[in-house]
């Protein structure tokens, strides 16, 4: 018995679930009454199941290797990662960790070395001479001289204490140092700093300005020092 032409294509679409609900109900009703269409439906279902049951090719994983290589290449380009990194791809996490560690260690070494150099520019072993280390740390410049306790103190007797104080300051500045003076009635106190290599010249210069007397004994003038000079008027 033949199937009805009016239903044939829809019969096939009905198997595939591609009909709207109204048309699907009409097909179902028609099938109850039409033996020819029931036979055709059985035949359609049979070939469909045969096709579904047919063996399928199994694709090897390596089939998509070129495409995966392309994914990795484009991914690297997108991230801006250089091609040489692909050489390290298998062990990149460990390698990058080691690289980061080395970079941090190098940075720390540079910072520590920099600090050590600038805290001890003359390369002396500060631990052997704590007094000079302290002096180095406290080396005063400008107004801070006033608050610094002098390393060397002395008295300079001159004809005019104000003029004498000015000359002491001028001498210190001429030798690359600095000076700060405090004047009181009848005397002036000048706090001076001069570079260590110029300290001998400064003391000699003081002798040329008046009568100089070191009241702290005879300290060795090594390293930065503050010299407190009380300039008094000679009677």
């Amino acid at each position: 018995m033949m199937m009805c032409d009016a239903w044939s294509e829809d019969l096939s679409a009905w198997i595939d679930g591609e009909l709207d609900s109204r048309r699907a109900r009409e097909i179902a009703q028609h099938l109850q009454a039409c033996e020819g269409c029931r036979g055709a439906l059985a035949g359609f279902q049979h070939v469909t199941l045969l096709m579904k049951a047919a063996p399928r090719p199994r694709a090897s994983r390596h089939l998509t290797d070129p495409a995966m290589a392309l994914v990795r290449k484009l991914s690297r380009e997108r991230r801006g990662t250089p091609a040489w990194r692909s050489l390290f791809e298998p062990f990149w996490p460990k390698f990058s960790l080691a690289l980061s560690g080395a970079a941090i260690a190098s940075l720390l070494a540079i910072i520590v070395g920099h600090n050590y150099f600038f805290s001890n520019p003359y390369g002396r072993d500060l631990t052997d001479n704590p007094r000079q280390e302290s002096a180095a740390a406290e080396a005063p410049v400008g107004p801070s001289i006033q608050s610094t306790k002098p390393t060397i103190s002395g008295e300079l007797a001159v004809a005019d204490s104000a003029v004498g104080a000015d000359r002491v300051a001028t001498l210190a500045r001429a030798l690359g140092g600095d000076a700060y003076s405090v004047s009181t009635a009848g005397s002036s106190t000048v706090f001076v700093t001069v570079p260590p290599t110029k300290q001998g010249a400064f003391i000699n210069g003081l002798s040329g300005l008046g009568k100089w007397q070191n009241t702290t004994g005879a300290p060795s003038l090594i390293g930065p020092a503050t010299i407190g000079i009380t300039v008094v008027q000679h009677p």
């Binding site: 096939s12 679409a13 595939d16 035949g43 359609f44 070939v47």
Partner: peptide
């Protein structure tokens, strides 16, 4: 829709 119907029809016919 037509192609799938035709495929079913012809395959069935050949198998019969």
């Amino acid at each position: 829709k037509t192609r799938i119907f035709r495929a079913r029809e012809r395959l069935q016919k050949q198998l019969v």
